[in-house]
Design a protein around this nucleic acid. Structure first.
Lengths: 135, 135
DNA sequence: TCAGGTACCGAAAAATTATTCGGTATGGCT
DNA sequence: AGCCATACCGAATAATTTTTCGGTACCTGA
C-alpha cells in the first residue's frame, strides 16, 4: 500500500513559478503570444513540436491561472484571440532569460558524455547568442 | 498501435533550459547549493518536501549535465560536497527571478476559481516580496 | 446539402517523473 | 561484533503530464 507522505510547499516562489508556467509547452505558448501569435490556428502552426490538443489544454490552464485571456471575435470568419494579462506580461523577461541561457548552453544536451568537470570550457565557449525562439 | 509522431526541437533555448533544470526539484537543489548547502545530508534536511532518493537522483543528473561537481572529502568524518560549476552559477540569477515572480504571484494558486479576467487586480496587489526561498 | 475553415473537448494510451521501500558499502566508535 | 552515521543505488509503484485518436459544433459559401 502506498500513501503520499510529502505535502507540497507553496511558500517557495520557485515551486509556484514552475507550477504556473513550468510545464513542457506553456513557456513556448506564452512566448508565442507575446510575439503576437494569438489565434489558436496560428499557434498550432507555429508550435509544430506538439499537437493542437496539447496547446488547447495548456491555454485553458493558463487562462484559469489568469496568465492569458480569451477574446471571441464573432462575425466572419469567426476567430479567437488570446492575449497576455498584465501578470502574463511579467513572465516574458524571465522567458527571455531562459531562452538566452538555453541557446548559450545547448551543447550540454549534445553529448551525454564529455562534460568538463569544471565547466570552464563551456563557460568560455559561450556564444552569447541573440535571443529568438521558435519552439 | 501507437507511434511517436513529434520529434523534439532543441533549437529553442527555453526547451533546452527546461530540460536541464526544469524538473520539479532541480531548481531548489541548485538554489540550495548556491546558498552554501552542499553536503547530501544537509540537502536532505533542508529540502523536506521530497525524499532523499529524489535529491540524489537529481544531483547525479545535474552532475551529468555539468551543472554541479562532486568532491569527496576522505578522512573523518568522510563526507561529500557538491558545488556549482561556472555554468551552474549562471542559473542562479534566473532562479532568483523565478522565485521573486512566484512569491509575488503565489495567490494565483490559492483559489482555483476567482481569477480577475484582466489580471489588473493581481498586478496591483503585487507585494514585491524580498527574495528568499527555502524549498 | 455539402465541403471547408475555425475552435474545442473526452477519453484512453503512452511517456515521463516522482516516490517509496529496502537494500549496499564504508569507516569510526564502544 | 554490534551500532551509528554517512552516501548511494535498484526496482516496483504511483502520480503526473503528454500524446493520440476520434469526435462535436458553429458558420459560410458553393
Amino acid at each position: 500500500m502506498y500513501e503520499r507522505k510529502i505535502k507540497e510547499d507553496l511558500d517557495c516562489g520557485i515551486v509556484v513559478a514552475m507550477k504556473v508556467f513550468g510545464s513542457k509547452w506553456k513557456p513556448c505558448i506564452i512566448d508565442a503570444i507575446g510575439r503576437g501569435i494569438k489565434r489558436p490556428s496560428e499557434l498550432h502552426r507555429a508550435i509544430t513540436s506538439t499537437s493542437a490538443r496539447v496547446i488547447d489544454m495548456q491555454l485553458s490552464e493558463l487562462m484559469a491561472h489568469g496568465i492569458v485571456t480569451r477574446k471571441i471575435h464573432a462575425g466572419f470568419p469567426l476567430f479567437v484571440e488570446y492575449s497576455l494579462t498584465a501578470v502574463g506580461e511579467t513572465i516574458l523577461p524571465i522567458l527571455e532569460q531562459l531562452n538566452t541561457w538555453g541557446l548559450n548552453n545547448k551543447h550540454i544536451l549534445d553529448t551525454p558524455e564529455e562534460n568538463g568537470a569544471t565547466g570552464e570550457d563551456a563557460f568560455l565557449s559561450n556564444k552569447r547568442t541573440p535571443v529568438s525562439s521558435i519552439c
